[in-house]
Amino acid sequence: MTATAVRPTGLIPAPRAAADDATTQVARPEPAACRAVAYQRVLHQLVRRELRLLADLATWAPPGEDQRTAALTRHADLVSRVLLHHHAVEREAVWPALLRAAPAPARDAVEDWTARCARIDHMLRDLSTAARQWQVAGTDPARSAFASACRALADAVDAQTGEEERTLLPLLAEHLATEDWAAITASSHCRLSGPEQLFVLGLALEDSCAGDRARLLGGLPWSARTAWRVYGARRYRSAVVRLRGAPPAS
């Protein structure tokens, strides 16, 4: 599949500005809670963007072109696995740590999150079903059903992450202990291959502000930073051109 065969989307991300991008700001160690909130915000941003891009790209995809169908459904599967892992980490580690530190103010918000995310996880299974049906049938209705599933999921994720960022992330920033975040990051490993990990890193870096980029890269092992610099960024750009028909934002 060549890049010229892909109709470019109008939803290509642009790097996001933030207050911590100011060049006059003095570098200083960050509390663990700030890094935790930044991780949550960047992951939410990545998933919202990619689901909407998938809906847009699928709309223009030739319904009977197997290679294009495979590329888009494979990307949907990757985004789904990332989001499911993120929900598992929140459910099993992040929110329990928050509830230990601030049980009264966090309890209702965590219960609301649980209900919303159960619905989203169900919609992720629906998206997987729609992807398989498009791969098998290769028809215009199957393609449209896949695009609709991506769009509906993007709307649900928008609403859920927006509420989470309004209610839970401020509590996380205020109450999460350094040792709790260290334990979470040490024990939470997403089952992605090496190339998938570098690709997801590119997705996370693409439209993040300078502060979040520094946090992401600074939190990686030396070997991963080297891999990204030596070949990961180049391969990411090529993969994005094949997927979107346009290069990444930066």
Results as ranks from 00 to 15, higher is better:
A5P: 00
A5T: 08
G10I: 09
P13T: 12
A17E: 01
D20K: 09
T24F: 15
A33T: 10
C34Q: 07
A36W: 00
V37A: 15
Y39F: 13
L43A: 05
L46P: 02
R49F: 05
R52S: 10
L53Y: 00
L54H: 01
L54D: 01
A55D: 00
D56Q: 15
D56G: 07
A61W: 01
P62S: 13
G64C: 12
E65W: 15
R68S: 10
T69F: 04
A70F: 09
L72Y: 00
R74F: 04
H75S: 10
D77T: 13
S80K: 11
H87C: 11
E92H: 09
A93L: 13
W95N: 02
R100H: 11
A101K: 04
P103S: 14
R107V: 13
D108K: 15
D108Y: 02
E111P: 08
D112C: 07
T114F: 00
A115Q: 09
A118F: 05
R119K: 13
I120H: 02
I120K: 03
M123I: 06
M123V: 02
L127D: 04
T129V: 06
T129S: 03
A130S: 07
A131M: 14
Q135D: 04
A142P: 01
S144N: 06
A145T: 14
F146P: 15
L153G: 07
A159N: 03
Q160V: 09
G162V: 06
E165K: 04
T167S: 02
T167H: 03
L168I: 08
L172M: 09
A177L: 05
E179P: 04
W181H: 06
A182M: 04
T185K: 01
T185D: 00
S188N: 03
G194Q: 11
E196K: 04
Q197H: 11
F199A: 15
L201R: 08
A204Y: 01
G211P: 00
R215Q: 05
L217M: 15
G219K: 01
L220S: 00
A224W: 04
A227Q: 10
W228F: 14
R234W: 13
R235I: 11
Y236M: 13
S238F: 10
L243M: 13
P248S: 11
